[in-house]
């Protein structure tokens, strides 16, 4: 009798914990969509390898892909970069800092009505070209801009 009670209690507390986690939003099933971190792409040491790993390519320049970044960044640790794709059906955007030790800085995928529009702040180690790659209808487009850095943002 006692044994059964114990098992039941055990089971009850286990499901209780699970329900608690669900309520706290830790295990939200709808958010399981988040893609896994692409280790190979983010640890690649050159832009081409990184793009290949994330399933993208350099693509062609397109004026409908707009990137805003400062001409000169006084502080390389915080460089605001704003990328907007006006290319129809843009599904993903990747941002690379070509001179950084690992060029790929971030990658975003859009669904359910999200505009292909991203604002981020990046660390830029030295004066470098920042390049955005957009994917639309299976084709790739790019836009880029050189940002001059007076104080580097990587390393001490």
């Amino acid at each position: 009798m006692d044994m059964i009670r114990r098992t039941v209690l055990k089971g009850a507390s286990a499901t209780g914990v699970l329900a608690g986690l669900l309520a706290a939003g830790v295990l939200k099933p709808t958010l399981a969509y988040a893609s896994d971190w692409n280790k190979a792409a983010f640890e690649a040491k050159d832009p081409d390898t990184a793009l290949k790993a994330i399933g993208a390519e350099g693509g062609s320049a397109n004026k409908d892909l707009v990137m805003k970044a400062p001409d000169i960044a006084e502080n390389g640790a915080v460089v605001p970069v704003d990328v907007t794709s006006n290319i129809p059906n843009t599904t993903s955007l990747s941002i690379l800092v070509l001179k950084n030790a690992s060029p790929l800085a971030s990658h975003f995928e859009f669904a359910n009505g999200a505009n292909a529009d991203v604002a981020v702040r990046l660390k830029v180690g030295e004066t470098s070209i920042i390049r955005a790659i957009a994917k639309a209808d299976g084709k790739f487009y790019n836009a880029q801009k050189e940002v001059k850095v007076t104080v580097g943002g990587c390393g001490g």
Binding site: L31, V79, A105, F110, A111, N115, C154
Partner: peptide, 28 residues
């Protein structure tokens, strides 16, 4: 996610700034 539906999923490298700020735009 908007009302539980994922709209943007992103991956970041350490080259994103400390205390990162992200901006997104969603229709609908």
């Amino acid at each position: 996610a908007l009302n539980g539906k994922a709209v943007v999923s992103g991956q970041a490298a350490p080259s994103v700034s400390r205390n990162p700020v992200f901006g997104f735009k969603v229709k609908g």
